[in-house]
Design a protein around this nucleic acid. Structure first.
Lengths: 230, 230
DNA sequence: TGTACATCAGTGAACGCGCGTTCACTGATGTAC
DNA sequence: TGTACATCAGTGAACGCGCGTTCACTGATGTAC
């Protein structure tokens, strides 16, 4: 099933017995979560898939929670990379850059459903490294919005700009969740997923940008309260 | 902890021993899911909280999966009601009606996180009643979009209108998920949640409506593919 | 270069636990006569 | 109205199972001299 592969060229740091057990446990955790979700996760099954005894993971992660926290932390790091790669992919147009960040967000969720399911659960204990990685991913998205509106890193976003950030995050996050839940089959065959997302994002971003610039010329939307960023 | 309350006036149908065990089991399932998530669910704990023996639930739901399916089905029915109530709350303005549906969607998720967590998991087995209830909830949302664009029940939505539906669903679903994950604390204190959602939804809906009406006058967004509804 | 020792990744048996489900049962409710 | 019986919701003991974690251990790797 999951034979232990001898490392082709040992990763220097952990070529003791298994060779790269730490990485293998992380990979096994991701695939198990992708297959069965968080409620189907078990440390013993992860050990089994990695070809080691049930006590082996404790040497690397302490306990089951430690492994899950480590995977969640790596997951946020991966999301940060995906967002930054998307930003770069967008080229010179700030709208395209942010749109590609959104595409990167959803692609990440679809490519690594196991990681994604760990990232946004409610009962997270406060882990410092995890919080830092999560904050970095958020900052990557915030950065795209700053570029869109031309807000420097040391400037505050306006309430309307915070709102734009929240809108974009909500829409990509919701799209990803619905896609993972299989709910997008109501709209189109799975192959068209990315095209659908682009068609949702592009006009939204253009209108956000236009709306902010042209706001005084339009009838102001009734305010029911002011968002207080951060 | 969870004493069995004798039913004030027996619900006629199930006043045998416990009185309303079926309902009690459903309520216990919801609160357990809200507290510990799906991975913390157990049939025995539900029985314990309902004050009955571990074998009692089997008489009403067959097995653990049957109970979860029943709760998910009721959850979708509740969401449908919430969406219809929101629609009614919106009054005469189609934008307001759809916006209030969105508010109803998020309120439902926040009020019943246990139910909500069951509704959109990926590994669902095909249950007929569950599928019917899920379809009804979707139809309630679709109905709001039809009203927004003035599309009769027997008419097809255009691709752009399907896209609008997907955008709105994504944004409210994502907003709800982020709120449940505690991620909205980055933006504002929890009290401001509903105001934030309204400020996200209102301009989005107005722009969707305006965008569809004015589309020929604007430079057409580049199409990368057509959504194929249903 | 060789030897003795320290380190530590991984073993495998064992623990106690809570789980879902089964089973024969009990006893209250509902119904036929 | 009373009696005998059928129904069925709920009991509680029992089952086998997989779980997370512990523990003393093994044995390969790395290091001091």
């Amino acid at each position: 099933m999951h034979p232990v592969e001898p490392p082709a060229d040992p990763p220097a740091r952990e070529a003791y017995h298994h060779g790269a057990l730490r990485d293998a446990l992380i990979a096994a955790t991701e695939s198990l979560l992708a297959e069965r979700g968080l409620e189907g996760f078990s440390l013993r099954e992860v050990a089994r898939r990695s070809g080691v005894s049930p006590a082996a993971p404790a040497h690397h992660f302490g306990d089951a929670q430690g492994l899950l926290t480590a995977v969640a932390t790596l997951a946020f790091d991966g999301l940060t990379e995906a967002l930054e790669a998307g930003n770069a992919r967008g080229g010179d147009d700030a709208v395209a850059r942010l749109r590609e960040q959104g595409v990167g967000y959803v692609d990440f969720a679809m490519k690594f459903p196991g990681r994604f399911s760990l990232m946004f659960r409610s009962g997270k204990p406060a882990d410092e490294a995890l919080s830092r990685s999560a904050a970095a991913a958020f900052a990557a998205l915030e950065n795209g919005v700053r570029e869109l509106f031309g807000v420097a890193a040391d400037e505050d976003l306006t309430p309307a700009q915070w709102q734009a950030l929240l809108s974009i995050w909500s829409v990509v996050h919701g799209f990803a969740q619905l896609a993972l839940a299989g709910q997008l089959a109501r709209f189109a065959p799975p192959g068209g997923r990315e095209a659908m997302l682009r068609q949702v994002l592009a006009p939204m971003l253009e209108q956000q940008l236009r709306g902010l610039c042209a706001r005084p010329a339009k009838p102001a939307p009734r305010r029911t309260g002011k968002p207080r960023p951060r």
